[in-house]
């Protein structure tokens, strides 16, 4: 397993503590499904983001089993899932890995674990834009995200990615003009507000 980030690793031997897995089984959405995990690693191999995760999905489940509460709930991995569903489709034990990851992220937030700054900023900008346009503007969202940390880092990051932006535009993959909002944006906002009020808002 390529797992270069060993941070948070305890010094002494790990003592298994079943109480955290019990907590996950009972309180996390789809948490009980983890019982069926047989640690085959198909999820980790399928995950397009596992190379930037601190722990692969498989490892997350192993950590839950071992009772490593803070490692799991403060991990980057549970926040990084993009819902591509590769893992869920492939899991031989029918563990809905995507749902478990979101369940864990949600649970971590409720438990007061603050996501890392980048994740939180991006999430905030993302939701702002959804509320404003009802869709994502592929050049506006990154720009806002880059500049949310200040003007200098914003310019720096934009320059870094300028080449890619030009290529995308030349291939008509990105429009030059700003996106317009979707039809019925007001209705969409109402729906999102209601969903948020019901407490099922996303990360």
């Amino acid at each position: 397993m390529a797992d270069p980030k060993k941070k948070g690793k305890a010094e002494g031997p790990v003592s298994y503590d079943p109480s955290f897995s019990k907590e996950v089984f009972e309180k996390v959405d789809y948490g009980e499904k983890i019982k069926m995990c047989m640690q085959c690693g198909v999820c980790a191999a399928s995950c397009p983001l596992s190379m930037v995760m601190d722990y692969s999905p498989r490892k997350i489940f192993a950590l839950i089993r071992a009772g490593k509460r803070s490692e799991v709930l403060s991990s980057k991995a549970i926040m990084l899932c993009t819902s591509c569903y590769s893992c869920k489709v492939r899991c031989p034990r029918k563990v809905p890995v995507v749902d478990v990851m979101h369940g864990l992220a949600n649970y971590a937030l409720k438990q007061g674990y603050v996501p890392r700054e980048e994740t939180a900023l991006f999430g905030r900008e993302f939701w702002k834009q959804i509320l404003r346009l009802g869709r994502i503007d592929e050049k506006d969202l990154p720009r806002r995200y880059f500049f949310s940390k200040g003007i200098i880092p914003g310019i720096k990051k934009s320059m870094e990615l300028a080449d890619m932006g030009i290529v995308l535009m030349l291939h008509k993959r990105m429009k030059l003009l700003p996106e317009r909002s979707v039809k019925g944006i007001k209705e969409l906002r109402k729906m999102l507000e209601k969903a948020s009020a019901m407490g099922n808002g996303g990360a």
Binding site: M1, A10, V14, K59, A62
Partner: peptide
Amino acid sequence: IRGSVEAVGDEGGKLYVAGYDELLGEKIK
């Protein structure tokens, strides 16, 4: 737990098993 046993011992009337957890990549007790 997938792994191997390194020692079995007695501690305060109860047993402990120390070993290596392959999937965690860490020593366990």
